[in-house]
């Protein structure tokens, strides 16, 4: 980082770098509802997404590359998702898992439900289902990996969404005084 978002890397190096990002997606599960159970099923021995290099060892957002939002996002929870996303270091990817995360799902007309995670953070892959099968998540991950292998990091960073609302920017820091 720092250099890679300024300079377009030569093709062989870009290939190797993209390959590294593709097979090392440390994953942070933002489980909000029943879809989280399917996500967990995808990590268990029957489906085992560590095969594809999706490693669920990222205990905190700082180490994560991939955020999987699975479940109903409420307006109350939305700032937390936004903040979590901002705490992740670039390059970061987001999978919206299930109908609720895609656009509110069965609760789209509820007063308290956010109509999709993409209202708050940019989403790379939408996985449909209610809840989707674990294999559907694997399919979404494979689609994401195909995207990563062909992308240019410079373009990705340049085209990233910069919303004016940044949570916690004005918050006082207790340790500073």
């Amino acid at each position: 980082m720092g250099v890679m978002d300024q300079v377009e890397l030569p093709k062989p190096i870009r290939y190797v770098f993209n390959w590294g990002r593709k097979y090392s997606l440390w994953c942070f599960n933002f489980g909000l509802a029943c879809c989280a159970i399917e996500f967990i099923a995808a990590s268990t021995s029957r489906h085992d997404f560590i095969r594809h290099g999706v490693i669920p060892f990222a205990h905190g957002p700082r180490q994560a590359d991939l955020l999987v939002v699975s479940g109903t996002l409420t307006d109350k929870m939305a700032p937390s998702v936004k903040r979590l996303y901002e705490e992740m270091p670039e390059p970061k990817y987001v999978i919206s898992f299930g109908s609720c995360a895609n656009c509110g799902g069965p609760y789209w007309d509820s007063y308290s439900v956010t109509k999709g995670v993409d209202q708050v953070i940019p989403v790379d892959v939408y996985v449909p289902g209610c809840p989707p099968r674990p294999e559907a998540l694997l399919d979404g991950i494979i689609a994401l990996q195909g995207m990563i292998q062909n992308e240019s990091l410079k373009e990705r960073i340049a085209g990233r969404r910069l919303d004016p609302i940044t949570l916690g920017a004005d918050a006082p820091l207790a340790l500073e005084n």
Binding site: N102, C103, G116, D118, V123, D124, V125, Y126, V127, P128, G129, P132, R133, E135, A136, D139, G140, A143, M147
Partner: peptide, 12 residues
């Protein structure tokens, strides 16, 4: 069939 994850939500 379940393999129809998309990059754009309109495609769903």
């Amino acid at each position: 069939e379940f393999e129809y994850a998309e990059f754009q939500i309109d495609d769903l």
